[in-house]
Amino acid sequence: MRKWSRKNSLGGLKLRTEMDAREAGVLRSLIGAVTGLLNERAQSAPDDELAALTGMRTGNAEPPEDPRLRRLLPDFHRSEPGSPDADRAGLNSALRGLHEPEIIDSKLAAGSVVLDTLPTDGGKIVLTPEQADAWLAALTDVRLALGTVLGVDADTPDHLDPDDPRGPHLDVYHWLTWMQDSLLQALAP
């Protein structure tokens, strides 16, 4: 993949790069995996009679069990252990039930923009600033999910032992990080 570049044209600002077929396939697969998780979560929301009457969608009140989804759909409020408001499960459930469908929709829309603008067999990619924002959001979601699986934290080394089976996946994580950083730099004036 080439570094993202910015080009001002008569049609406005465009962000450009080029990706080979293998890179495009990896990115499509990762976006597809994350959107698949999000779709499953959305479809698992319980039926709500009030939602059926009002047309207002509700989501799951309980946090996801899958650690990747817990990272993508965190609690709305986190208290310090031992603080007087440490038990906020009811508040989190209510907020999750109200807002999770919209959050999932937003994440799915960002993934859809990537899939729509990424050539299947690789090639040139040209984005508007709005599409670039969607790419940034989708790349963040993929990095969060992959980072959760790999256990990435502040102490994770840049390279793992050659015998560590996580090594190639960490390389993909770093590639996604580089891609996201390159796009952010190209967006900056």
Rank of each mutant, 00 (worst) to 15 (best):
E65L: 09
W175V: 04
K14F: 15
E130N: 01
P157C: 00
P165C: 02
T156H: 07
V149W: 10
L30E: 03
V172C: 01
T120V: 12
D164A: 02
T120G: 00
G12Q: 12
A145N: 12
L10N: 13
S5V: 13
D164L: 06
T117D: 09
T156D: 04
E65S: 11
L37G: 06
R166M: 07
E23A: 15
H174N: 04
V172A: 02
P162I: 02
R22M: 12
L144P: 02
L50Y: 11
L160I: 02
R166D: 14
D141A: 10
P165E: 01
T140K: 12
L118E: 08
P157V: 06
L38F: 05
A145C: 13
G59P: 05
N92Y: 03
T117G: 02
N60V: 07
L69A: 07
G123T: 01
T117I: 06
P46N: 12
P74K: 05
E102V: 06
L27S: 02
D105H: 14
M1K: 07
A94M: 14
L30V: 02
H174K: 03
S112N: 11
H169Y: 14
A61M: 09
P168C: 06
A89K: 13
T58Q: 07
S9R: 03
L187Q: 15
D85C: 02
G123C: 06
V34M: 01
S9C: 05
G147E: 04
I103R: 11
V149C: 02
Y173H: 15
E49I: 05
V114G: 09
H99C: 06
M19P: 00
A154N: 06
L91M: 08
H77M: 14
G167M: 01
A21W: 15
L53A: 11
L38D: 07
A89G: 12
T54G: 03
D66P: 07
L91I: 13
V26Q: 12
W135Q: 00
R16N: 15
L10C: 04
L176C: 01
F76M: 00
E18L: 00
H169E: 01
T117F: 03
A145Q: 08
A132L: 10
A33Q: 12
K124D: 15
P64I: 04
H99E: 09
P63V: 04
P119E: 14
G25W: 01
L98I: 10
L38K: 06
Q131Y: 03
P129E: 12
G55Q: 04
G151H: 08
D161E: 04
R28C: 10
G82V: 04
L144Q: 12
T148R: 05
L139Y: 07
P165L: 00
V114K: 06
G36R: 09
R28N: 13
K7H: 13
